[in-house]
C-alpha cells in the first residue's frame, strides 16, 4: 500500500499541480466579473447566463457535430479494424502500422488538404465540372458543416481504429466458430458475439472522437465558414479578442459538463448491457 502511494506520487503531483488546480481556478473565474478589461473576484452568474442564452444553440450544434463525428468514426473504425483483424490475415498488423503513420501527417496538413479538395477551384469541383455534371463550382462543398465533419472524421479515424482493433484482438476465433456451429448467421455472429465482446473498445473509440471533435476549434475556423462554426471558436474569441475570461470559462465548462453527461449516459447504458444477467450471480 505504501509502495503504491510512493509510485503514484510523482504523476499525481504533476496532475494536480498543472491540471487540477488550474482547471479549478478557471472554474472559479467563471463566476468573476470583468470591469474595464480587468478581472475582478466576484460571485456573478452573468457569464453562465450568457452561455445559456447566447451560446445555447451553438452548444447543441457543437454537440451534434461531435456526436456525428464520433458515430462515423466508430462505425468506419470498426469496419476497418474488423477487416484488419479477421480478413487481412498476416497483413493485419501492417494495416495498423499504416494507420499509425497517418497520425504523423499532422492536423493542419489534413485540413489544408481538404481545403484543396473541397475548395471552389479544388479537385472535386474541377472534376465535377470536367465531366460536365455542374457548370459552376459547388459552393456548399467547403465552408459548411459537412466539410467540418468530413475533415474531423478523417483526422480522428485512427483514434477510433486503434482501441477497437485492440479489443478485437481479444475476440477468439473459436467463439466465432462456436457461434456458427450453433447456427448463427454472419450478422448474428457480428451482433451477438463480436460486438458484445468489443464494447469497451467501441466505447473508448467513440469517447475519444466525440470529445476531441466537440472541443475542436481549428477545423471549423478553416473549413466551417459561417454555417459550420463551433463553440470552441467562440471560447477562443471570448478569451482573446473580447477579454471576457468569465464568459470563456463558463462556455468551456458548460461544454465540458454536457460532454461528460453524454459520455456518462453512454457508459451507464453500456455497463447495463454488459452486466445483464450477472446480477443474480452471487
Amino acid at each position: 500500500m505504501r509502495r503504491a502511494i510512493l509510485l503514484l506520487a510523482p504523476s499525481l503531483a504533476v496532475l494536480i499541480g498543472i491540471f487540477a488546480i488550474p482547471v479549478l481556478l478557471l472554474f472559479v473565474v467563471s463566476f468573476w466579473s470583468v470591469k474595464s478589461f480587468r478581472l475582478q473576484p466576484d460571485f456573478s452568474l452573468a457569464a453562465w447566463h450568457r452561455f445559456f442564452t447566447v451560446y445555447g444553440d451553438l452548444t447543441l450544434y457543437t454537440l451534434a457535430v461531435g456526436l456525428a463525428v464520433g458515430l462515423f468514426c466508430t462505425l468506419l473504425g470498426f469496419v476497418f479494424a474488423y477487416a484488419a483483424r479477421f480478413k487481412a490475415g498476416r497483413f493485419g498488423d501492417l494495416l495498423l502500422v499504416a494507420t499509425l503513420i497517418t497520425l504523423f501527417g499532422g492536423y493542419l496538413v489534413k485540413i489544408y488538404a481538404w481545403k484543396s479538395i473541397l475548395g471552389a477551384d479544388g479537385l472535386l469541383n474541377q472534376a465535377l465540372m470536367g465531366i460536365g455534371l455542374t457548370s459552376q463550382p459547388l459552393a456548399f462543398l467547403i465552408y459548411s458543416r459537412g466539410a467540418v465533419i468530413i475533415a474531423l472524421v478523417h483526422f480522428l479515424l485512427p483514434f477510433a481504429i486503434l482501441p477497437i482493433y485492440a479489443s478485437l484482438r481479444n475476440v477468439s476465433e473459436t467463439t466465432i466458430e462456436a457461434a456458427r456451429d450453433l447456427g448463427a448467421s454472419a450478422s448474428q455472429v457480428l451482433m451477438r458475439v463480436i460486438v458484445p465482446q468489443c464494447l469497451s473498445g467501441l466505447f473508448s473509440a467513440f469517447a475519444f472522437c466525440f470529445l476531441l471533435a466537440a472541443g475542436d476549434y481549428v477545423t471549423p475556423m478553416l473549413l466551417g465558414g459561417t454555417s459550420g462554426s463551433m463553440l470552441g471558436q467562440f471560447v477562443l474569441l471570448e478569451f482573446s479578442t473580447n477579454f471576457n475570461w468569465p464568459a470563456g470559462s463558463a462556455m468551456s465548462f458548460g461544454l465540458l459538463f454536457v460532454c461528460l453527461l453524454v459520455i456518462g449516459a453512454l457508459a451507464a447504458a453500456g455497463s447495463r448491457l454488459m452486466r445483464r444477467g450477472e446480477g443474480a450471480a452471487s
Binding site: T174, A179, D181, L182, G183, E278
Partner: peptide, 29 residues
Amino acid sequence: GPEKRPTNMVFQSYGLFPHLTVAENVGFG
C-alpha cells in the same frame, strides 16, 4: 456451412462466450 449441419462441436479451447453467463452460453443456439 457449419450453421446448417446437424452436427455440433465441442472445441479444444472450448470457445465459450466470455460476455455471457453459463446459462446464456448453453441457451445460445
